[in-house]
């Protein structure tokens, strides 16, 4: 697989390591009501879709940036990639 790095262009997926569902960016508030249950869901439960999946890839043998890659888990087709930093900053606004 070639991952279209937003800064560096297409790069071999071998340079990356994988973390999983991009919802891991949405870490629950540990001080909020029901934090225990929220963290249990966050740590252990996954949507695990067959089809389009937004997921975190780390460019370890590259520029060390985290990407949010949109990929189809049935065909392995990669539909897009953006810096996880941009995704997180956009969400904060």
């Amino acid at each position: 697989m070639l991952i279209p790095h937003p800064l560096l262009g297409p790069r071999d997926a071998q340079e990356f390591t994988y973390l999983g569902d991009a919802s891991l960016l949405n870490r629950p508030d540990g001080m909020a009501e029901g934090a225990l249950a929220a963290f249990c869901d966050y740590v252990y439960l996954r949507d695990n879709p067959a089809g389009v999946h937004r997921e975190l890839w780390f460019h370890e043998q590259g520029d060390r940036s985290w990407l949010v890659v949109t990929r189809n888990t049935v065909t392995h087709e990669i539909l897009g990639a953006e810096l996880a930093r941009d995704v997180a900053l956009r969400r904060q606004k």
Binding site: D12, A13, T73
Partner: peptide, 11 residues
């Protein structure tokens, strides 16, 4: 990586 493809990649 997450997959339902029943086939993997070369690496």
């Amino acid at each position: 990586y997450n997959s339902y493809a029943q086939r993997g990649n070369l690496p």
